[in-house]
Computed example of a mutant assay.
Amino acid sequence: MTATPQTSAETPHTESRSKEPRTARGRKTLRLILDAAAEEFGARGYHEGSIARIAQRAGVAIGSFYTYFDSKEAVFRALVADMSRQVREHVVPFILAAPDRLAGERAGLTAYLDFVRTHKALYRIIDESAFVAEDAYRRHYVDVADGYATSLEQAFGRGEVSDGDWQVRAWAIMGMNVFLGLKYGVWDDGRPVDEIAAAAHALIADGLAPPR
Rank of each mutant, 00 (worst) to 15 (best):
S8C: 13
E10C: 14
P12W: 10
E15M: 14
E20R: 15
R27T: 12
R27N: 14
K28Q: 15
R31Y: 13
L34D: 08
D35G: 13
A37R: 00
F41K: 00
A43L: 09
G45E: 03
G45V: 03
H47Q: 09
Q56T: 12
R57I: 04
V60L: 04
Y66L: 09
Y66F: 15
F69W: 03
A74W: 01
V75Y: 04
M83C: 04
R85D: 14
R85M: 06
V87H: 05
H90W: 06
V92I: 12
L96M: 08
P99V: 00
R101L: 09
L102N: 07
A107I: 01
A111S: 12
Y112F: 15
A121W: 02
L122V: 04
Y123S: 04
I125E: 01
I125N: 01
S129I: 02
D135E: 15
Y137V: 12
Y141W: 12
V142E: 11
G147I: 11
A149K: 12
T150Q: 10
L152E: 03
A155M: 06
F156M: 08
G157R: 06
G159N: 05
V161A: 05
S162Y: 01
D163K: 14
W166N: 05
R169Q: 11
G181Y: 02
L182G: 06
L182D: 02
D189Y: 01
A198E: 13
A198Y: 02
A200F: 05
L203S: 09
I204P: 05
L208C: 03
R212N: 10
